[in-house]
Design a protein around this nucleic acid. Structure first.
Lengths: 272, 272
DNA sequence: TTGTACGCGTTATCAT
DNA sequence: ATGATAACGCGTACAA
């Protein structure tokens, strides 16, 4: 049988409520009682039960992550960042891969809500309006609420600066890191010879750029390192995770977060 | 206020216990009562509370995933596979990135146990012995329990078959998919000219192989597609996820699973 | 077939 | 500063 709070209370000769207060660090507990309780806690190897706590406190220190598609290469890195922040706050994370079917998404959402999640993160999909808990959109802008996104404009600026008059060509695969970024490319003539070739979601065909050319691959920090001599446009997956976690936790705690969009800057970095 | 089981019972004019039985599909409930209860459930929009259920049933329909390093490119794909199976069974998944520090790992473990997880998956790290719940090792073999791994021997066989007398060279990056596979390579002379060059965790330097050569990249299904003309050795991340989930759920349900190692075969597939 | 009553482990609200 | 006790929402023997 597991050691419960009652066991501790009995062994320490105090009331359950007192134990609870000691655990929560209630200031109006005498240091003698506190020590007594703590020592019995350690002696008995007591560990609080998060489920029971959730039942009576009506919240669970748990958040849910909804991915439209979990099977993207940056998912792990994002979650790593997210988890780093939440775990320090004693908060656990559930995840779901939802796909695009609205009904399935809602089913998944209700399941998590029945788990009393304190908040939901919607990654590359739009928050359902009636989620009953604080929500945060990641990747897609969401005018009706809070969202964290990567700044595509800044990516374009960096590329144009690198091009410095040369032509810029962007090639994207099925699952690009910067979806739709091509439409942001200015429609101007190249003033210099040479081309900046950008590969997003596809491997570059060759790694030795021609003399005037520059090759840029879009990648996350932890992806397998591409060969030398090429530029990297980092899509900040990890940072997106840590930032999302901070924003969500603040929202949950009710720290003044109003509907807004937070933008993260992708970093263009030179060849090794 | 949320709709609870008592509300449904009161509205339907029956006892809480009856509602509970209807929900669990207890056969000894009259169909008339059952219909009555179901209709009130829908009318009131009642949704069962998983936390409360967990408290009284002493289990939570939740499992935990421990990654030594969550920030690997295949993490999402693995989780997608895992989640596909668990979600169909009404089971939710928590995740943690633990790193290699033993104490931190144990802390995280105790946190999840206090959440009453029904089982734990240890991805690329060894299960702690006193986890109190069923465990499953993924990636690393774990003699003392159940593990699911990718068959490195089979990978080598496939490569040797492809080489067919040519030399085989394997280059690995910091985070290879097949760690340690180089040591499995047979130490025999090449009988033919040409080389099979294998890249695991690093991008191939060039994508147009020499006439006699063959280029192989180790990858998962959903990674950005490498250029044409090269072979792929698939590391079955998604399948590893689905299989792990099945094995773990069976273990939890106590379906005869004895200490054993399940091996998944990587697939070597020709150039597009 | 259905109702009663207690237990699950904690938090919170009264008292004292 | 601490104790007693009632929620919290559900599962489940046991009774009817």
């Amino acid at each position: 049988m597991r050691v419960t709070m009652s066991d501790v209370a009995a062994a320490a000769g105090v009331n359950k409520a007192t134990v609870s207060r000691v655990l929560r660090g209630d200031p109006r507990i005498s240091s003698s009682t506190s020590e007594k309780v703590w020592s019995t806690i350690k002696k008995l190897g007591y560990r609080p039960d998060a489920i029971a706590r959730g039942l009576s406190s009506r919240s669970s220190d748990t958040v849910g992550l909804f991915f439209r598609d979990l099977a993207v290469p940056w998912a792990g890195e994002f979650m790593a960042g997210f988890e780093r922040v939440t775990s320090r706050q004693g908060c656990e994370c559930l995840f779901r891969s939802t796909g695009s079917d609205r009904q399935q998404i809602r089913n998944a959402m209700f399941r998590l809500i029945s788990r009393r999640v304190d908040g939901l993160v919607w990654i590359d999909c739009l928050p359902e309006p009636d989620s009953e808990v604080p929500g945060l959109a990641v990747g897609l802008e969401y005018a009706a609420g809070i969202s964290v996104v990567v700044d595509h404009d800044h990516a374009i600026s960096s590329l144009m600066a690198l091009a410095d008059g040369r032509a810029v060509e962007i090639q994207q695969g099925e699952k690009p890191l910067f979806p739709g970024i091509v439409t942001l490319l200015p429609r101007q003539r190249a003033g210099k010879s040479g081309t900046v070739r950008v590969f997003d979601g596809v491997s570059p065909p060759c790694c030795e750029p021609l003399p005037d050319d520059a090759i840029v691959v879009c990648t996350t920090r932890k992806s397998p390192v591409p060969a030398k001599g090429i530029w990297k446009l980092y899509w900040p997956a990890f940072e997106l995770g840590t930032l999302s976690a901070r924003v969500l936790l603040n929202t949950i705690k009710g720290r003044g977060v109003r509907p807004d969009t937070v933008r993260l800057l992708p970093v263009l970095s030179g060849p090794a």
